[in-house]
Design a protein around this nucleic acid. Sequence first.
DNA 1: AAATAAAATTAGATATATCTAAAAAATAAT
DNA 2: ATTATTTTTTAGATATATCTAATTTTATTT
Lengths: 220, 220
Amino acid sequence: MMLTAAEENYLKAIYHLSDEGRKSVSTNDIAAEMKTKPASVSDMLRKLAEKEVINYRKYYGVNITPEGKKLALQTIRKHRLWEVFLVDKLNFAWDEVHEVAEELEHIQSPLLIQRLDAFLNYPKFDPHGDPIPDEFGDVRARPRIALNEMEINQAGQIVAVKDSSAAFLRYMDKVGAYIGARVKILDKVEFDGSVEILVDQKKSIFMSKDVASNILAIQS
Amino acid sequence: MMLTAAEENYLKAIYHLSDEGRKSVSTNDIAAEMKTKPASVSDMLRKLAEKEVINYRKYYGVNITPEGKKLALQTIRKHRLWEVFLVDKLNFAWDEVHEVAEELEHIQSPLLIQRLDAFLNYPKFDPHGDPIPDEFGDVRARPRIALNEMEINQAGQIVAVKDSSAAFLRYMDKVGAYIGARVKILDKVEFDGSVEILVDQKKSIFMSKDVASNILAIQS
DNA sequence: AAATAAAATTAGATATATCTAAAAAATAAT
DNA sequence: ATTATTTTTTAGATATATCTAATTTTATTT
Ligand SMILES: [Mn+2]
Ligand SMILES: [Mn+2]
Ligand SMILES: [Mn+2]
Ligand SMILES: [Mn+2]
């Protein structure tokens, strides 16, 4: 099975939306995610259904097939490996890698990815803490909790961000929150859900519920 | 100026053909180089002329403009830097890099190329001995001579191959000829132009005129 | 159950990139 | 100088990917 770059992008979007627990994914959701128009999505869904990477019932949304999931995970694997390369080897900041990886993920060469993986020493997570699927599409998910859902006095370690937008990542940099940082919940404001966090046993930072919900940690 | 991947490929082909000394480049030559049909070339020439990267007089072939040359050299720079990356960092063989570099060269990110160049330690030549243009499109050419044009008993060092096809490169590997090898012309057969070469002061190899003409050396 | 609103699809355009077959122009041969 | 050959261009198709506007279908209100 051979997909075009556009098809890979759509399939990845459908995979990500499916992964959020929805039973089926709507045309409008895909259009929003892809920043295209619903009419374009309808056209693409017909093509993806023909290639049997999604199940598509007109007017009722789509589900990704096992074959489609495998292909989506292959693209995601490439995307995340390239992100690791850009950060670890080319000294990109973690808020500068997404757009470039969005292009690099479409390069067609199994050998390239196999060698890149080895060169990077088989990384398990990308710079945003997202897991890198193995070559068979297997992802080992860690149990993660958003900071706003942790209890007061509970400690943990930041392992990922839910929002990988440059704006959010730069905010993280600004307040000194980073993947790997040890955190402890100092206070939770009941009124608006904002939280106060102790980072690395020395720095205290306030953040809104919205921000806290986009920072994921493992509890310790 | 923003070119599509296809436009970049055509422009590169036109640059390479121009570089062989022709005053102007013909539609058929471009079609042969690009492995497309002359009809497709005509279409593309109109577009490239509109973008002012070539001068095009219908039925009389094309010349690349200074702006076009600059853009072609930028693509060539990217192609060759990626080839160095693949060989030096990912342990690709020199006959395995061309196809992948042909895709990678179209990734649009000035920062990526700047960082890649630094990461590779500002290489001046690609794995086939071809010079890597600097970011302004300047290429410093070395005087090179094909092995079949050297005199008997003359010594030199292989610095590049004219033919970078996988088949030719594998032949080079097979007979033990490589970029950097010290060579001396032992004999030249007048009848068919074939030559006998001493490699690294120990190994003698015979090669046809055709092969010898595709191996470039600097004389010492 | 009708009417209204929202969501999704289709119809018809535009843009890119390619092809085959036919026509036109330039070049070579008689 | 015609004629023949080669080269190049144009005309008309096909395929991908996107859009706007119109239509159809589903979902929500009254
Ligand atoms: Mn992409
Ligand atoms: Mn990421
Ligand atoms: Mn290319
Ligand atoms: Mn090369």
